[in-house]
Design a protein around this nucleic acid. Structure first.
Lengths: 150, 150
DNA sequence: CGGGTGTCGTTGACATGTAAACAATCTACC
DNA sequence: GGTAGATTGTTTACATGTCAACGACACCCG
């Protein structure tokens, strides 16, 4: 068995802590404007669609969520008036998720607070070199080939 | 309002994706040996205590969990035989969490699989420079002072 | 056309987290 | 010593996610 050496151990632990810290920061700031991170994710990806509309299935796909999860979350957001369900004219099984006025307003408000939050907790604390390093690290960690040789 | 420029945007999105990807990788591998990440966290931090024992409150503190969460999780782990509750001789309100033989075995088995998993999903994909960069980035992101001047 | 097969969104059963309230107990201070 | 206030672990109520099963519909192919 090949354990982690001290450098590796520190880097791994640092990585774990950072995930928790940054997540807590941005999600706390979003909560202050009345949205959860999943809420924000739904609103912002939906707002990027033509007509602020998408099939539940397509939307779930784009966000990497299960249809089940999005269906439940959409119901909660519908109750809050952030979006609406409409029957899909192109597919009798499907439904369309449509952003409401209220949902768009909520997003607009939240967006600027969120960008500020991301700056405060993340961007502004890092140098341009750090940002470049993060992209490189991400490329390596996401490479689907990289875990072949074992 | 000061939006993110393209470099910043890419770095932020990369960071978000990486959190999901690595988390999914290691937690999937842990599941294959019958533990969740929270399970592993409890087992490993508890095993570091003298006598493999700690009060619920101290343990929760050390892990950054609420007592409520740990109480619930400990109950589930107790049902599975991974740990045991004992009245705390030093505090009539409290209880001690004690790792069982079975819990220690589970940890021992899981630990080597987990290290291998961390290597495969994280360490082995990165250069020593990347690891150093991660530590530096973590220091900056965790600095409690850094969000003062705004 | 007309079935077999697959996909869509929803739902039931459950797992796991949070926040707040609670009883039991400790602690500090007079 | 005795009491006011904290702290401990649990619990209740709820929020949110998973997985599997489901009915309704679409689609392909003979």
């Amino acid at each position: 068995m090949h354990w982690l050496n001290p450098d590796e151990e520190r880097a791994w632990r640092a990585f774990l802590r950072v995930m928790v810290t940054v997540q807590a920061g941005t999600s706390g700031d979003l909560a202050a404007v009345g949205l959860s991170e999943p809420d924000y994710e739904v609103l912002s990806t939906l707002s990027e669609r033509p007509g602020h509309t998408s099939t539940l299935h397509a939307q779930a796909d784009k966000m990497g969520w299960s249809r089940s999860r999005l269906s439940r979350h959409a119901s909660r957001m519908e109750e809050r008036g952030l979006l609406r369900r409409t029957p899909d004219p192109a597919d009798g099984r499907g439904c369309l998720l449509v952003l409401t006025e209220e949902g768009l307003d909520a997003l607009t408000t939240a967006a600027s607070a969120h960008v500020e939050s991301v700056r405060r907790h993340f961007i502004d604390r890092l140098t341009p070199d750090d940002l470049t390093a993060i992209e490189q690290i991400a490329r390596r960690l996401e490479d689907p080939q990289a875990d072949n040789g074992r």
